[in-house]
Design a protein around this nucleic acid. Structure first.
Lengths: 218, 218
DNA sequence: GAATAGAACTAACGCTCGTTAGTTTTTTCG
DNA sequence: CGAAAAAACTAACGAGCGTTAGTTCTATTC
């Protein structure tokens, strides 16, 4: 595996032109897949958005399917790394509240991600499942231990804990995906910085209510 | 407006054949729209599922769009009625916990509904929004009053309350839509009766934690 | 600066899509 | 039963889809 010359950083202008184009394609495709789903997005739309002809896309991705997989991998990678780190950490240094805030921060920065994830979830996660298996497998392997040592272990039975975790996940992701509908209904934009701060604070309180051991810091 | 003869009940076998077919089409379309979304569902799939040729669908619905709208209206109507009733009730007889359990019961019976709603939400709710406006308008009209008299008014500021309601909504709907992915990951089916009872109970506890006034009954 | 590889292009393919026209069969009702 | 209406059918349409072949232009490298 040859090292690239002079180690050009990811956003360096010295990168090969092709890689820049590939990234622009990923950006466009991500926005469209998030907004309209896989079936609702055509390569024509993607090509138009990056101001290319359709066949040029095939110089960077071998198929629509592969493009979608690349979008998903790029988008979801950081979250999986974060969660894997959380799962691998020793019990006493596992701070659920902190992890939730960090996920929230990622979703704030990467606004396409929630819709992308939910579209994939609704499709049954055919591409997400293998990725989750690879990264999250350790979590299920240590599920028993984690259930006992997790925050809130005193309050929730081991059987209940996954359901509570799923609930928190849904609150986190659903807030972003529901926001546009909310805005269409009553005009309020929930995704402003101020509102997002608010939501983060509420999330903390809810998590605190669910896991009594997690201290509330403001 | 002529009354139908002998007032045939909705599931009576004496109904006109055409209406039966229309309902079978709605059933098939609902399942497919829920599973694959609007763009991912073709009229060919729908026709095949009801064992008809495609043009026959047009004897009952004028377009794919109209079929989708009919599916959505039929599916979401009962929930909107329930919520409208809740919103119209006087403050003192408004029991958030009870309404949540009744919504949960509807979703349990009508398994396509959560995915249908989330697909529509992800699409920005172009068809859901008008329906919600019509049924839910009173809620926003009395939003100020409700914020003051709602359960949990003591705990949550008026600004926070909508966010908390959205969170509960997401937990409710997201549980059903996330279940298939969860099953793909570790084999457990969350949608068995026993698990659903469990989830309902947890939901009660969570709501109790969020709205201290709502008593926990088991 | 010439050779080479990469990335853009034009043109067109086979297929599926939603929809329509026109015809035949089935159901409804006096 | 017989007429009329409803609902099924066959056939075909134009448009859009993902994808491929083949060509021209452009960036990379010695």
């Amino acid at each position: 595996m040859p090292a690239s010359p002079l180690l050009p950083s990811l956003d360096s202008p010295h990168r090969r032109k092709g890689e820049q184009t590939a990234e622009r394609i990923l950006d466009a495709a991500e926005a469209l897949f998030a907004e309209r789903g896989y079936a609702g997005t055509s390569l024509r739309d993607v090509a138009a958005r990056v101001e290319l002809r359709i066949p040029s896309l095939y110089n960077h991705f071998p198929s629509k399917d592969a493009l979608y997989a690349a979008v998903l991998a790029r988008g979801i990678g950081p979250v999986l790394e974060l969660l894997a780190g959380f799962a691998a950490a020793p019990s006493e240094s596992r701070d659920a509240g902190a992890v939730i805030e960090r996920v929230m921060a990622i979703l704030r920065r990467h606004r396409n991600l929630p819709k992308l994830i939910q579209h994939e979830t609704l499709a049954g996660g055919p591409r997400l499942t293998p990725m989750l298996r690879e990264w999250i497998a350790p979590v299920f392997g240590r599920a028993g231990e984690m259930a006992e040592t997790a925050p809130g272990a005193g309050r929730w039975a081991p059987e209940q804990l996954p359901l509570v975790v799923i609930a928190v996940y849904n609150v986190l992701v659903g807030f972003f995906t529901f926001a546009p509908l909310y805005q269409a209904l009553n005009g309020d934009d929930l995704l402003t910085d101020a509102r997002l701060d608010h939501q983060t604070r509420i999330l903390r309180e809810v998590v605190a209510a669910l896991f009594p051991e997690v201290p509330i810091e403001r």
